[in-house]
Computed example of a mutant assay.
Amino acid sequence: MKNFSKALFALTFLIVIGSSCKKDAATESNPKIITEAKTMLNVSYGNHASKIMDVYLPTNRTANTGVVVFVHGGSFIAGDKSDFTTFVKELVRNDYAVLNINYRLVDATGLTDSPTKHKRSEVLVQDQVSDVSEVVDYAIAHAKEWQVSESKIALAGHSAGATLSLLYTYGSRNTNKVKVVANLAGALDQTFSDIPFYFYLLPDYILEAGYRYTGYVAEAANEQYYRAISPLYVANANQKIPTLNIFPENNAVGALPKQGRATFDAFTAKLNSLNVPNKFVMVAGADHEFTKMGNFDIVLSETMTYLNANLK
């Protein structure tokens, strides 16, 4: 019995010592600190009611976590950040912090009236680019607070949102702030003078929309202002930002001209001539909204792959 008690004591001692060693070992291995996911809705980034965004911060983020600013579409006159909440949340699930933004819209009052109402908009496309710029600066200013990277920032957008993303990325305000841009079916060329008899062929509301976008009537003398909102002409050799272009095969957008493959090919050729890194992806059978089953899975996969490869 005495021998049995001694053996039991020895066994208990070994278990206690072993457990203690395991705890010490765990302490010495410096385990990863888990940071909880955080969502902040309708965060104001400026002094206008439309300047709000939803901020999604992923689990276990660090100062190395990339930030994606997502810009919704809507022909510059409509749309809302909620249109892409599902897509944005998939980016977050893949460990990116995402700012899903709203921005000031071009005034659409009377645009589709008959006859079309002629009116100057207080908000122009260039003002919307300024809104995107404010968001980027806001993200950098809050990076430490959010525990994300202040240097790994990407822009992505759909339709008009893609156009705004490209205009900011290639513009002078992007002083090495945005490192990657993803264009999902953006409007790349908004000029018109090369369209024969454009003032007869294009609907009045399209010409009026151009006026509201730029503040200048759609006539040949004002073409420079339309080039200034066209990524095809804004792209330049000073901003060699990796660019992903995703083109839906059936990219019809109402009566808007220049939404087809030829324009995307011209844009690719322009980027190549400038030595701007880029990738072109066509989604077969897709419409402008990528509504066909499986289309957005392709868009998400291509976007994630490009971000992972270039947001370093």
Rank of each mutant, 00 (worst) to 15 (best):
L166G: 05
I140M: 02
L124F: 08
F247I: 02
N183F: 08
F290Y: 14
L99E: 04
V132H: 06
I101H: 11
T109R: 13
T65Y: 05
L11C: 12
V69K: 06
P242Q: 05
N176A: 03
N250G: 08
D83P: 02
S133W: 00
G186S: 02
K292T: 07
Y96L: 09
P203F: 01
N176G: 00
E249R: 14
D265Y: 14
F290E: 05
P196T: 00
K312I: 07
D137L: 00
N295S: 12
S230W: 01
A26G: 07
I153Q: 01
A218D: 11
A269E: 15
A266W: 14
G73L: 01
L167N: 04
Y138T: 00
G260T: 05
A309E: 13
D83H: 02
K38D: 15
H288A: 02
M40N: 11
G110R: 13
L232P: 09
V276G: 12
N174V: 00
T109A: 13
E249L: 09
D131F: 02
Y103C: 06
R261G: 08
D54H: 00
V68Q: 07
Y198W: 01
M282E: 13
N236G: 04
R104F: 04
S50H: 10
V71M: 07
V55T: 02
P242S: 03
S172L: 13
A209H: 05
K6P: 00
A284T: 14
M1T: 10
S149K: 01
K81C: 10
Q128N: 04
P115Y: 01
L256T: 04
G294A: 02
P196K: 00
V71A: 08
